[in-house]
């Protein structure tokens, strides 16, 4: 029970923090979204010890565990574009499929190769 209250409080805290950062980024005309700035800011506050890990840890791990839930309304939003997807759907699907496959394979293989070279050098 206590853990649930603590988690809710921390989620609320993170939400208020994100609203504050949003206001700040639009006031300062920073060309990056508030969420990215907020992440970097919170990271710096954690590293410097201004914010302690246990102040945010429970709420943050909840949010990360249910991340997919927050994408669902935008996935449902695809229905608004049914006409576009009917007309060019197959081509779009092909671009996304082949493109994503290439990015995944390319970046993963390169990262793995460099990783192994570094391992070999250090051993």
């Amino acid at each position: 029970m206590k853990k649930i209250a603590l988690g809710l409080l921390q989620v609320a805290g993170l939400t208020v923090f994100s609203l504050l950062v949003n206001t700040l980024t639009s006031l300062l005309h920073i060309p990056l979204p508030g969420s990215i700035i907020g992440m970097i800011l919170l990271f710096l506050l954690l590293e410097s010890g201004v914010i302690r890990l246990n102040w945010v840890e429970v709420g943050a791990s909840w949010l990360l565990a249910e991340l997919l839930l927050f994408f669902i309304p935008s996935a449902i939003g695809v229905m608004k574009y049914s006409k576009l997807l009917e007309a060019d759907g197959l081509q779009v699907l092909a671009v996304v499929l082949v493109g994503t496959f290439a990015v995944m394979a390319g970046s993963g293989v390169l990262t793995g190769a460099i990783y192994r070279i570094k391992e070999r050098r250090s051993s």
Binding site: S35, M39, L41, L42, L46, L64, E66, F71, P73, I76
Partner: peptide, 21 residues
Amino acid sequence: GKWLSDLLQPATIAFAIPLHK
């Protein structure tokens, strides 16, 4: 539904925790 989309913001900020760890 937008209430859920709105939580994407604090959820993105929450990535700072595993980043720090």
